[in-house]
Amino acid sequence: MDSIHLSPRLAAVASFVPKGARLADIGSDHAYLPANLLINNKISFAIAGEVAKGPYENAQHEIVRRALTTQLEARLANGLAAIKDEDHIDTVTIAGMGGVLITDILEAGFSRAKRFETLILQPNTDEHIVRTWLNNHQYKINDEVIEQEDNHFYEIMIATKGTQSLSSLDKKFGPVLRKRKTSVFVAKWQKELDRIDTIFENLEFAGKADSPIYQDWKKKYQQIQEVIK
């Protein structure tokens, strides 16, 4: 992968970025995403934010390599602190992190009154935590996609300022994803059913088929079955 050829996961993130956006990509690593968007004339300006020196230097190298120094700037900073008021950023992407870390970054920025029109988020884990944060901070999820790379599933969501009331099912499965029920979505949750089957076997072997924990897993299993049927 490079800034010319994005992975399916990052390509899905890129597809959500509005035309002409002023973008901040937080945790940008090599700056492949903003560089790709600039090369394809989809955005006008971007910040590549990194908290670690190594990835920050990787981003700097890619910016020079692609001759994007007037449109793309790498900044060494923690989370949304990479963004300055004079950047006039309207869109933020955060991809490839755990859901807890993503919400920590958003919460820190939110507490400093940094509020952006569009958030495009791709948590590697704990997607429900990200959706809950959006729901509680006046952001509305407009669209979602799910991508599979090798044996991993990645959910990408785009949210804009607005109100939304998400149910517990919406938070867990995605308000858009659970309605579309694509083959990739079903495959992700079938994999989870297979994992729970193994848990059942282990609990039964331990003589705990009547235990509260077994019943809790059974409820989760039945819920997933109901959603993907």
Rank of each mutant, 00 (worst) to 15 (best):
A59R: 02
P55C: 09
D90E: 13
E73L: 07
T70P: 00
L72H: 04
G98W: 06
A52D: 12
T91F: 05
G49Q: 03
A74G: 07
I94P: 10
K53P: 07
A67Y: 01
I89S: 03
G96D: 12
N78G: 09
K53L: 15
Y56L: 05
H61D: 14
T70L: 06
I63D: 02
Q60F: 01
K84I: 00
I89D: 08
R65Y: 05
H61W: 05
H61G: 04
Y56E: 05
H88E: 12
V92R: 07
E73Y: 05
A82R: 03
L68G: 01
N78I: 15
T70G: 03
N78S: 15
K53C: 06
H88A: 15
D90S: 12
G49C: 04
D85V: 07
P55W: 08
Q71W: 01
E86K: 03
Q60Y: 01
A95F: 01
P55F: 06
A48Q: 04
I83C: 07
I83F: 02
T93A: 12
T70K: 14
G49A: 07
G96I: 05
H61Q: 13
L76Q: 09
H88N: 15
D87I: 01
D87Y: 01
R65K: 13
A82M: 14
I94L: 11
A48W: 01
G54T: 14
G54S: 13
A48G: 10
E50V: 01
G79Q: 11
A95D: 07
H88R: 08
H61T: 13
A59N: 00
Y56H: 13
V51W: 03
A52W: 04
V51Q: 06
I83Y: 00
L76T: 06
G79W: 06
M97I: 09
Y56T: 03
D90V: 08
A95C: 12
K84D: 14
E73S: 11
D90A: 08
L80V: 09
Q60S: 09
L68N: 00
E62S: 15
L76Y: 13
N58P: 00
E62I: 01
H61S: 13
T69H: 02
H61K: 14
N58G: 03
D87L: 07
T70C: 00
V51A: 14
A82L: 09
A74N: 02
I47Q: 02
M97P: 10
L76N: 09
A74S: 12
A52V: 14
V51E: 06
E73K: 10
G96M: 10
A82E: 09
E86D: 11
V92Q: 09
I83E: 06
T70M: 02
A95L: 06
